[in-house]
Design a binder for these strands. Structure first.
Lengths: 339, 339
DNA sequence: CCGAGTTCTGTTAGCGCTAACATCGGCGGA
DNA sequence: TCCGCCGATGTTAGCGCTAACAGAACTCGG
């Protein structure tokens, strides 16, 4: 029954024929062009849903040169941080009427990021967000296709693109100062892996506070963000209990590993050792003890980056590069106590 | 310098002119058509990278009617489960040469899912994966655009689409049997929110084992997957300590909440109460005590769903609907002990 | 009641690509 | 030598849409 027996989906011309107008008028209705008579508009609308017509955005993109799609390149979107950032990006993009096409890299290196950007460019995205937490990845932004609007998240501040990030250095300062104020002689640090910008920023802030206070700077232990690596660091630190009274851990997952190692070794937190984490993942509040940590507002980072990117896209001109910094927030819980 | 001073990116015709061939020959080279002389091919290739040409996949999609893009509709990709599933989907899709366009819903209801599917359809995706953990969302699959290949993940098994999911019922059976084998009289359950299919499946498996063993079936406590809701349930359960010796919690995050509540109330795990979680998030191994849980292979779910979807897309015909089930895996750790 | 301006609607061209068909040259067999 | 065939390349048309212009219909003041 009905005229739509063939399987081929209806096109604008079909709607036009049914409504007794030209396809251009249908186009006008769809694009809210002002100069369409109200009666014509409703006639077209009726035809549209009679046929179940949906416009073909591919054809539209071909002629307008705008796909209203944004590309996102990220790394391991299984982790809480990247996952939250990407979520924030997607929400903000969709609120602005854009789609999001995601490439999630297994390993992050310049070539991989470049490939991803290349694919996205072929696909006709209007702009690209690169969540580039590593030096090597951030550098890939240097050879973006000419004229492609882009923004880096958690990336490097030098180079040719705008960057949006949480102030890692400030976060580390907050954490370290807190421990010093509690009366600890110095603060140890379990850092993230080398080459990660966040890891570097946190080391920098930690060291800066210690230096300013004239405290000794212990050697850092290095983890890979995983609870297991924190556990291993915890074992080492536990062996030095007595010397160590305060630890700033570069993320909450590793802090959990430390907590576990300390429990096994009979080291009491916060009585013997105080711990501060970083991220404030949803679990942290329910660790034993609840974790004092630094909250990062990943949602805000996502939204700000889309703001910057859309401004670039919609201006059509290369804009001066911005560096937007989202402040971190100190969250006091039970894993830290006065010496 | 060079011929490429204008800002407009080069098109196939530009390459053709430079290589001294027709644009069709360039197209043939790009698509690995066999009938191109080796020398011509290299000449074209040289022209391509001399100009920095990238093909326009939008134009290609318009004529081939295939965008090589898959749509994914999901819910709160901040959670470990959805995030991991989406990651698996994206990896599998890219390995197969497809892009992934994501819509991440804030709230999940039939209308929202429908809108999302509609947008994706306009955008010209070749197929859609709906991560539909709730009844209401799963139902939206009933009104997919005609002929659109689709697959549901963690969704309902009735209706018109293929479904890939972890066997929730079996997972719950594993957890509950384990506790019974340890000598517990019965097993309490902290379930996920109503309307969630996973929550229902876990209740079903739990209840089935208890019934089969002729044990009393305690009333369930209901959480919302968050650690906080687990914490609240834990407080209630702690008040009943003595009666309660074993709890099967519907996910690891809530189990963490229970652990915290029990610690606060002085209830020892596993000495007084045994706990089994569900998911095996990376943190679970480092809880105190390490959590006995049921592992879901989210990566496998993602891959299988892409398999099913691509088979549909590439056959071009509506295929019979499949129901693929990924087995869960029992992981024994320190939060359970013999009565 | 006419012409100038304003709506509204239609016609044409073309986005960048691939499919389909046309053409051309060279090769082997009768 | 000529024909037929096949491999390599070119030409043409058109995917579904919007931009740009052309034309029709309607307004309104003098």
């Amino acid at each position: 029954m009905g005229p739509n027996v063939d399987r081929r989906p209806p096109v604008m011309a079909d709607v036009a024929r049914l409504a007794g107008v030209s396809h251009q008028t249908v186009s006008r209705v769809l694009n809210d062009h002002p100069n369409v008579r109200a009666e014509t508009r409703t006639r077209v609308m009726r035809a549209i849903d009679q046929l179940g017509y949906r416009r073909n955005l591919v054809a539209r993109a071909l002629v307008t040169k705008h796909s209203r799609t944004l590309g996102v390149v990220s790394f391991d979107t299984t982790l809480y941080g990247p996952a939250s950032t990407v979520y924030g990006i997607e929400q903000a993009a969709r609120d602005a009427g854009y789609f999001v096409s995601i490439v999630s890299l297994r390993t992050i290196d310049r070539a991989g990021v470049n490939d991803a950007i290349g694919y996205l460019a072929e696909q006709g995205v209007d702009g690209i967000v690169v969540v580039a937490p590593q030096r090597s990845a951030a550098r890939a932004l240097d050879d973006l296709p000419a004229g492609m609007p882009a923004v880096a998240v958690e990336g490097w501040h030098q180079g040719d693109v705008s960057v949006v990030s949480v102030d890692q250095v400030e976060g580390a300062r907050l954490a370290t100062s807190h421990l010093l104020e509690l009366g600890h002689e110095t603060v140890w640090h379990v850092s993230g892996p080398a080459d990660w910008l966040e890891a570097e920023g946190r080391i920098e802030g930690w060291r800066a506070v210690l230096t300013a206070a004239g405290r000794p700077i212990p050697g850092t232990l290095t983890g890979d963000w995983s609870p297991r690596s924190g556990y291993q660091a915890g074992k080492q630190l536990a062996a030095m209990a007595g010397d160590v009274t305060a630890v700033f851990v570069a993320n909450d997952q590793m802090a959990l590993g430390l907590l576990r190692a300390f429990t096994e070794e009979g080291v009491k937190v916060p009585e013997q050792i105080s711990i501060v984490g970083f991220d404030d993942i949803p679990e942290s509040e329910f660790f034993s003890p609840p974790l004092t940590t630094i909250r990062q507002d990943f949602g805000a980072v996502g939204r700000r980056s889309i703001d910057v990117l859309l401004r670039q896209i919609e201006s059509g001109e290369p804009l001066p590069h911005e560096r937007l910094v989202v402040p971190p927030q100190f969250v006091f819980r039970g894993s830290t106590a006065a010496r």
